[in-house]
Amino acid sequence: MKKILAIAMALVMMMAICVPAFAAVTGGSNAGNDTIINTDTKKDTDGDGIGDTEVAWYTVTIPATQTLAWETESKDIEYTVASQLKTGEAVKVTVADADSAYKMTSNGGELAYTLDNATFTAPSAVYDDTAKVTVKVALDDWKSAAIDNYTDTLTFTAEIV
């Protein structure tokens, strides 16, 4: 036991006589030797190193015109949704008939239709993909419509939810 004790004491002694190199990493946060790096939600546009412009953005690109061939009972209208929003946010697109009559009209005739998938909410803050709204026209409606060019206006509305 004495021998062990002696060896231990010797070790401790050695430690003691180590050259006390006073060493320090200072200035950091936490225990002193950490530098916290964090991002700003603004980008630096004027080059002064300080973020000045919010970057969150989204773009919904909707087609100008969509055409249904005669007696097409279901037509997917694709549009693209791209966004880079704050965590937890997402783009929601709602498609509706401008005059909410849900009827395409020709000179004098009408063709009723319905919309499926009329609303789309992006699954994440950062998103870049297509979405689709489906225009449906029942075959009976086609059959009872005079052959003509029917048209209607759909309104796409985007919001951040």
Partner: peptide
């Protein structure tokens, strides 16, 4: 060694 506490990176 003197290090900065924080460093901010603009988006």
């Amino acid at each position: 060694v003197t290090i900065p506490a924080t460093a901010t990176i603009t988006w």
